[in-house]
Amino acid sequence: MVDGDPNLLRASKTLVTSDGYQVRTVVDGFDAPCSVAQEKPDLIVSDVMMPRMDGADLICALRGTPARTDIPVGILPAAAFPPGLHLHVFLTRLFSAAKLLEVLCEVQPP
Rank of each mutant, 00 (worst) to 15 (best):
G74M: 15
T69W: 03
S46L: 10
M49H: 09
S46H: 04
Q38F: 07
L43V: 13
V45W: 00
G55R: 12
P72D: 15
D57S: 12
P41L: 11
D54K: 00
M49N: 09
L58Y: 15
A56W: 10
L62S: 07
P66V: 09
L43A: 04
A61K: 06
I59N: 04
I59Y: 04
D54H: 03
P77H: 15
A56T: 08
R63G: 03
P41Y: 08
S35A: 14
R63D: 15
P41G: 06
P66M: 06
A61N: 13
L58Q: 06
A56E: 07
L43N: 01
A61M: 14
K40H: 04
R52H: 15
R52I: 08
I75S: 00
E39M: 07
K40A: 09
P77T: 05
E39L: 09
C34I: 04
L76H: 02
L62Y: 05
R52S: 08
R52L: 07
L62R: 11
V45N: 00
A67K: 05
L62N: 11
R63A: 09
S35D: 07
A56G: 13
R63N: 10
L76S: 05
V73W: 00
D54C: 02
P66T: 11
L43H: 01
A56R: 14
G64Q: 14
P51Y: 01
A78E: 14
G55C: 09
L62W: 12
A67P: 00
D54G: 03
D70R: 10
I59M: 07
I75P: 00
L43R: 03
P51V: 02
L76C: 06
L76G: 01
S35R: 09
D42S: 08
E39C: 11
M53C: 05
P72L: 14
A37K: 09
V73C: 04
D47H: 06
A37R: 10
V73R: 01
T69F: 02
D42C: 10
G74L: 15
S35V: 13
R63P: 05
A61L: 11
M50C: 03
A37C: 03
I59A: 09
V48S: 03
T65F: 10
V45I: 13
D70W: 06
E39T: 05
A61T: 06
R68T: 06
S46Y: 02
A78N: 13
D57A: 13
A37N: 03
R68L: 09
D70E: 11
G64Y: 10
G74Q: 03
I71K: 04
L43I: 05
Q38W: 06
A67L: 09
R63Q: 15
D42M: 04
M50D: 00
A37F: 01
A56C: 14
Q38D: 12
G74I: 02
E39P: 01
